[in-house]
Design a protein around this nucleic acid. Structure first.
Length: 407
DNA sequence: ATGTCC
């Protein structure tokens, strides 16, 4: 296949390989990529996915490999954020004509949302976690206690009561139909408050460490721990734990969601084993070009040859179940979505509730003023995004949502 | 995205 990426090389930095043919890239995002490319710990090159856009410290939609070092702010605070999807034996015509009760059943089964507590109750957490949650927490508790002994402030987080809960912002649950009319469940969530606390804590420590070493950084948010530094090992452990919490969180929600749909839909059904559970905001050790490196995917998905992944479109747009092509130049990665073309504030200014009603026709979901920032027109064209990464992934299934629950 | 001693 022809080469699909373009290369730019900032002065004093490694090359940036960009899979962005035919999609817009902001100047600020280019500047941010150049900052990361100038770090002395970056390995070989940086890969920018077609959904690349401005983030904090590092651009969302980028893959940053580092040698004997790790950048906590590049991973960010939503550690382990990602997607899970599961195909079922249900068909479109097995679903009820009115999907509103199905949406309510899902909303009752999975705590979601947040913001101001109503009557002292947090709708985004369990009052008392059900057995399935406590079993899952059992597999995480011991390592978490060990982390708390090293970093006692982590003990103050809401952890056990947040396992199996969705969160807010762009976290969502969907019931979708694939190209053959089969029903899928899909959801987007991360490591909730505890992952946020881990991220925040170590980002602050990395900044302090950079000040003590008087490192000359292109951006303070690109502070890194070098292997052997005081908190390097603690961060590797903590970020790994938060990623496991996030993956477990998605599994628990999927199980509770399936149980809720079984009660709401009369026809019995099975779920396929081919469930996909992938992070798109994480760091892990991998081998590339003959070296052991830390690969940070900030808004990017692992796409090794044959590996399954999920690329969700926005509310009202299609989503894709993909299979990786294992392109080494992308460090075996692909995009994590469509990517925004305007900020949430801009979207709320530009579009109306009527626009949102039109854009989400046929989807059982909220359509009020509070969700206008998720309108499909605030995102890049997902078809252009998929074309730009045709050498990174192939499409296996195309999903269109019929129910969407927003966090 | 999160949880509120900003």
């Amino acid at each position: 296949m022809e080469r699909k990426y373009e290369v730019t090389q900032p002065a004093g930095g490694v090359p940036i390989k960009m899979w962005t043919r035919g999609v817009p890239v902001e100047d600020e995002a280019m500047q941010q990529l150049a900052n990361a490319a100038r770090l002395p710990v970056v390995f070989r090159h940086i890969a920018a996915m077609p959904d690349v856009h401005l983030g904090i410290g590092a651009t969302v939609g980028s893959v940053i490999p580092t040698l004997k070092a790790i950048i906590p702010a590049a991973v960010g605070v939503d550690i382990g954020c990602g997607m899970i999807a599961c195909k079922t034996t249900l068909h479109a015509n097995d679903l009820p004509g009115n999907l509103a009760p199905l949406r309510s059943a899902i909303e009752r089964a999975v705590p979601h949302g947040g913001g101001p507590r109503s009557r002292g109750r947090d709708p985004g957490a369990w009052d008392e976690p059900p057995d399935r949650v406590d079993q899952a927490w059992g597999g995480l508790a011991q390592e978490f206690e060990a982390l708390c002994e090293l970093h006692p402030r982590l003990r103050q987080t809401n952890n056990r009561k947040h396992l199996g809960t969705l969160g807010s912002g762009n976290h969502f649950i969907e019931v979708c139909l694939d190209e053959e009319g089969f029903v899928w469940f899909m959801l987007h969530s991360g490591s909730r408050g505890v992952g946020n606390a881990i991220g925040t804590h170590f980002i602050a420590l990395a900044k302090k460490d950079a000040e003590q070493h008087q490192r000359n950084l292109p951006d303070r948010d690109l502070a890194y721990f070098e292997e052997g530094a005081r908190y390097f090992g603690d961060y590797v452990r903590a970020v790994g734990w938060a990623q496991r919490f996030a993956a477990r969180n998605r599994e628990v929600m999927m199980a509770n969601l399936i149980a809720a749909v079984r009660k709401a839909v009369r026809k019995p059904f099975d779920t396929h084993v081919e469930a996909v559970n992938c992070h798109h905001n994480y760091v892990q050790q991998e081998r590339h070009f003959g070296e052991d490196v830390f690969v940070t995917r900030k808004g990017a998905v692992s796409a090794r040859r044959g590996e399954m992944g999920i690329i969700p479109g926005s509310m009202g747009a299609r989503s894709y179940i993909v299979r990786g092509l294992g392109n080494p130049e992308s460090f075996d990665s692909c995009s994590h979505g469509a990517g925004r073309v305007m900020s949430r504030t801009q979207a709320k200014k530009r579009f109306t509730v009527a626009d949102q009603v039109r854009a989400t026709a046929g989807v059982e979901c909220r359509k009020d003023a509070a969700v206008i920032d998720e309108i499909p027109m605030a995102y890049k064209d997902i078809d252009a995004v998929m074309r730009a990464q045709a050498d990174l992934v192939e499409v296996v299934h195309t999903l269109k949502q019929v129910v969407c629950v927003k966090g």
